[in-house]
């Protein structure tokens, strides 16, 4: 499946790009993260502390064990600091 993967704040800075298209067979967010971490050290560094990473699937907050079936857009970002 093809996913649009977005990165925000320091995840965007560490990985070095705001979005990319990824072809994957990952079934869950956690599997996608594991796959990304094996790509290059910058991904490994960005996802080293998953307690500091949040994920949204098609713009809705989700858990790391959430399935990716039917999802088009995955976004990774740190805890939000609005207001």
């Amino acid at each position: 499946m093809t996913l649009q993967v977005l990165y925000f704040a320091w995840l965007r800075e560490r990985i070095g790009l705001p979005r990319e298209e990824i072809e994957t067979r990952a079934q869950t967010v956690a599997e996608l993260v594991a796959e990304l971490r094996t790509r290059e050290p910058r991904y490994d560094a960005a996802f080293a502390d998953m307690a500091a990473v949040r994920v949204a699937l098609d713009q809705e907050l989700a858990g790391m064990d959430a399935p990716l079936a039917g999802v088009r857009e995955v976004a990774f970002f740190p805890p939000m600091t609005g207001g």
């Binding site: 925000f8 949204a56 805890p79 939000m80 600091t81 609005g82 207001g83």
Partner: peptide
């Protein structure tokens, strides 16, 4: 709710350089 459930992130630039504001 908008403090921790709306997707905003703040980065401060000061004398020591720039740093993301931690939740």
């Amino acid at each position: 709710y908008l403090k921790s459930r709306a997707p905003f992130w703040k980065k401060e630039t000061g004398p020591e350089g720039a740093a993301w504001v931690a939740a």
